[in-house]
């Protein structure tokens, strides 16, 4: 059993090492506000509302909107260690309260940001595994045989059931691609370290869309090591109109699933057109720490585990 002191020192060393990397790269550390006036419309996330000083505020599921508003005010390259809150997420690799390390690089596209993510990982993890880069389409084709961009809903459903998925989901391709991810892909990549890029347009979230060899794609990536998702990044969408349209589409999905309605962040939408072209990524700090220190659960790297806090 590692002593509390040794565990805290290991985490402190990791944070210091990350800060040193960003300092060298010219990023400025920001303390992002985490109790804000708007929540997230993302149907997969549940922001928690709280009453503070007589106002309804939302505990943020990530510092993304706050940091983007700073970028729109010409903050330049920035990063934050932010305590994020996501309701209903408890498990080996999930805690309702956790730390996101999020950063933005001006003028980068998602490929340059993947280089940056990899450089940071190597900087703070001596024994980091070699990281493969693979497109979303290639990964799904290799493991499940489906074409993540083009296969029909019925083909995705058939493949999901073949990989042991039971039950039903809604009629969105993205939902069935997620089911395949959990049922087929994660179990098959338990010994690999991957940067997966160019997601399907349904899974764009806040990434800009583009085209690769004639195939429309979302310029989004994820870092997945030994089946655990460590980071999610975008070549950021800077088009307020398109962003507003996606927020509305989120709201209609929320409605379909019987989830509470969430108003889009009008402050973000009001300044997104002024945000300079950039790429940004959020990395689960405790997940990375657990992986580096050889633990197989978040609780081992929380100062006090969620259950005990």
């Amino acid at each position: 059993m590692v002593s509390t002191r040794a565990r805290l020192e290991a985490l402190d060393t990791l944070r210091t090492s990350i800060r040193r990397y960003f300092k060298k790269q010219g990023l400025v550390e920001v303390q992002a506000p985490m109790a804000c006036q708007f929540g997230t419309t993302d149907p997969a996330l549940h922001s928690v509302a709280v009453e503070l000083a007589g106002q309804r505020r939302y505990l943020q599921t990530s510092p993304e909107f706050a940091l983007k508003r700073l970028l729109a005010q010409n903050s330049g390259d920035i990063y934050a260690f932010a305590t994020a809150f996501r309701d209903d997420e408890v498990g080996q690799w999930h805690s309702p309260e956790f730390t996101l390390l999020e950063w933005y690089r001006l003028g980068f596209d998602h490929h340059q940001l993947m280089d940056d993510v990899e450089a940071l990982i190597r900087h703070c993890w001596d024994e980091a595994p070699a990281i493969e880069r693979i497109s979303h389409a290639d990964l799904y084709r290799e493991i499940t045989g489906v074409d993540s961009h083009a296969s029909s809903l019925d083909q995705l459903k058939a493949a999901a059931s073949q990989f042991g998925f039971c039950g039903d989901l809604d009629e969105h391709r993205g939902s069935w691609l997620d089911a395949l991810w959990v049922a087929a892909i994660e179990p098959a990549i338990q010994t690999r370290a991957l940067l997966v890029y160019d997601f399907t347009v349904e899974q764009a979230a806040l990434a800009r869309l583009g085209s690769v060899d004639g195939q429309p794609v979302a310029h989004r990536f994820e870092l997945v090591i030994h089946g655990v998702e460590l980071a999610n990044g975008f070549w950021e969408l800077t088009d307020a109109k398109e962003q507003a349209r996606r927020f509305e589409s989120d709201r209609s999905i929320r409605k379909d699933r019987g989830l509470e309605d969430v108003l889009p962040d009008s402050r973000l939408l009001g300044c997104l057109d002024q945000m300079p072209s950039c790429a940004g990524v959020a990395l689960g700090f405790e997940r990375l720490a657990a992986m580096i220190l050889g633990y197989d659960q978040l609780a081992s790297v929380q100062a006090l585990a969620w259950e005990d806090a």
Binding site: G164, G174, W181, A183
Partner: peptide
């Protein structure tokens, strides 16, 4: 409990079929 950051929540479950004794993996 498994949840893609931008996706819905799932549970990956191992069960033993008590009739055959076989282990099933289901999501």
């Amino acid at each position: 409990f498994v949840k893609p950051g931008k996706g819905q929540a799932f549970n990956r479950v191992k069960l033993r079929n008590l009739t055959s004794g076989r282990v099933w993996e289901r999501t």
